[in-house]
Computed example of a mutant assay.
Amino acid sequence: MDVLHLVALALIQGLTEFLPISSSAHLILPSQLLGWSDQGLAFDVAVHIGSLGAVLFAFRHEVWRILHAWFTQFGERGQTPESRLGWAIIIGTIPAVIFGLLVEDWVETAGRSVVVIATTTIVFGILLAIADARGSRTQEIERMTPKSALLIGLAQAIALIPGTSRSGITMTAALMLGFTRQAAARFSFLLSIPLILAAGSLKGIELAQAGTATQWHEILLGVVFSFIAAWLCIKLFLVALDKIGMLPFVIYRLLLGVVLFIWAV
C-alpha cells in the first residue's frame, strides 16, 4: 500500500479509536468509498499496538494504581476503590469477548456494508444525544458498581457492529446510568485496554500463523502515527469534553450517516 495511505489510515484509526464516532467505520470506508486497497493484517496489528500504547501512556498512573490495588486486595489491605474499579473493568470486558467469538463471521461479512455503517452511525448517534441531554451526570467513576460495569460491557459488545463506535456506546450507557461525562469517558478509555490488547493479540497470532513476509516499515508507521494521533485525541477530548459536550460528535455522526446513505443509493 502507498505510504501516504498507510499514514492516513494510521491517523484515522488513532483519532477515531477513542472518539464516539467509530474507528472501524472510518477504516472500512476508505477502501469502499475511495477504492484504497486493504491495509492488511500486519497494519491492523500495528495500529492496535499504537492505540494500546497511547491509552496506557495517557492513563499510566491510573492503570498502575488499579493493578497494584487489584493484586494487593487479597492480602491484609482488602478492597479499595481502585481494586473495585479493576473488577469493573474485568466484568465490563467479558460480554464483548463472548459476543466477539459468536458473531465474528457475520461482522467480517454483512456487518461491513455501507448501509449497516450508515444506519448504526445515525441510530447510535441519536442515542448518544439523548443520553447526554437526559443523563443526571452526578456519578463519579469511583461509584462504578459491578451491575453498572456489566451494563456498560453489554453495550460495548454491540459495538462489534461497524459504525456503532465502542467508545460512543460505552459513554452512552454510562451517561444513561447517571455518570458524569468525565467518568463516562475515563471508564470507556480504561475499558478499551483489555479489549484492544485481546484484539491485537489475536491478530498477531493470525499474522504469525499466516507466515507472510513482514513489512516492518509499514508496521513502524502504523504504530508511531496511531500512537501520536490516539494520545493527542485522548488528552484533547478529556480537556474539551465538559465544555463542548457530545453535540459536535452527534452532528458529525448524523451528517456522515446521511452522506453514506446518499452514496449507497
Rank of each mutant, 00 (worst) to 15 (best):
G35M: 04
S22F: 11
T80E: 02
H217K: 01
D242Y: 13
P248E: 06
H5V: 12
L247W: 14
S167A: 15
A8S: 13
A198R: 05
I152R: 03
I21R: 02
L221A: 09
G14S: 09
F227D: 06
K203E: 12
I91V: 07
Q156W: 11
G153A: 04
L29T: 05
L102E: 02
A42F: 15
I94N: 06
L128H: 00
G111R: 03
M171L: 07
V7K: 11
L85E: 08
L9P: 02
F99S: 00
S167W: 01
I28L: 12
I28F: 03
L255T: 13
L150N: 06
V223M: 09
I90A: 12
V239C: 04
E140V: 05
M176T: 11
I193L: 13
H61Y: 08
I117G: 03
G257D: 02
L29A: 08
D38E: 14
L191R: 07
P30Y: 00
M176C: 13
I117Y: 00
R137A: 12
S136Y: 02
M176K: 09
V63M: 09
L15G: 14
R134T: 11
E62A: 13
K235G: 03
V115A: 14
I251A: 15
G257T: 08
Y252R: 10
A213F: 04
P81E: 03
A185L: 06
E76M: 01
S31H: 06
L34C: 05
D105L: 00
S23F: 12
G163T: 02
A69Q: 14
G35H: 07
V259W: 14
I158D: 06
D44H: 10
G50Q: 05
G135C: 01
V107W: 11
A210E: 09
I49R: 03
V45S: 07
I21C: 08
P162E: 11
I28W: 04
G14F: 08
W231Q: 02
V224D: 03
V239E: 10
I219T: 09
G153R: 00
F179A: 05
L127W: 11
I89C: 11
A183R: 01
G40L: 06
R112M: 09
F18P: 01
G168I: 06
A208R: 09
F124W: 02
H26N: 05
I244W: 13
V223Q: 06
F43K: 01
Q209G: 01
S136F: 00
E108V: 00
R134I: 07
Q13P: 10
R65E: 15
G153T: 00
L11D: 00
G92E: 04
G204I: 14
I66E: 01
G100W: 05
S22K: 08
S136H: 12
R84Q: 08
S51K: 01
A173D: 07
F99R: 00
G245L: 09
T80S: 14
L195I: 15
L254V: 14
E140D: 14
G53N: 05
L67C: 12
